[in-house]
């Protein structure tokens, strides 16, 4: 069953060409991040820019390299459910520890 399954999947999988393109995009985003770090801008703005860039890298790797975009939706559930829980917990913890709730 496994082999059969793998073959079915391959039809809509990206091939090596797309992988290299994704890899190039990842490299470029990293370079942009590097550049942004040396801009003198408002730290809050910088934070949001980096968060945006990092999450796009994150999504590219998860979506393409890990095939989540093409794979069964249950895998996405197994991965993103704890991800959302963890992000929420982290945000709440930071709010608590930086005394935003007093």
């Amino acid at each position: 069953m496994t082999t059969e399954h793998a073959h079915v999947e391959e039809h809509n999988h990206p091939g090596p060409r797309q992988y290299v393109i994704i890899g190039a995009i990842l490299a470029i985003i990293t370079l942009i991040e590097f550049g942004v770090f040396y801009l003198s801008i408002d730290p809050a703005l910088m934070t949001w820019i980096i968060l945006l860039l990092s999450s796009s890298k994150f999504l590219l790797v998860v979506g393409y390299f890990m095939h989540l975009k093409f794979d069964d939706v249950r895998f996405s559930g197994l991965f993103f459910a704890p991800f959302l829980i963890m992000v929420s917990i982290a945000v709440v913890l930071m709010a608590l520890f930086f005394n935003l709730t007093r």
Partner: peptide
């Protein structure tokens, strides 16, 4: 001593 609003939430 979590703070009032955290406690309420």
């Amino acid at each position: 001593g979590l703070g009032a609003w955290a406690t309420a939430a």
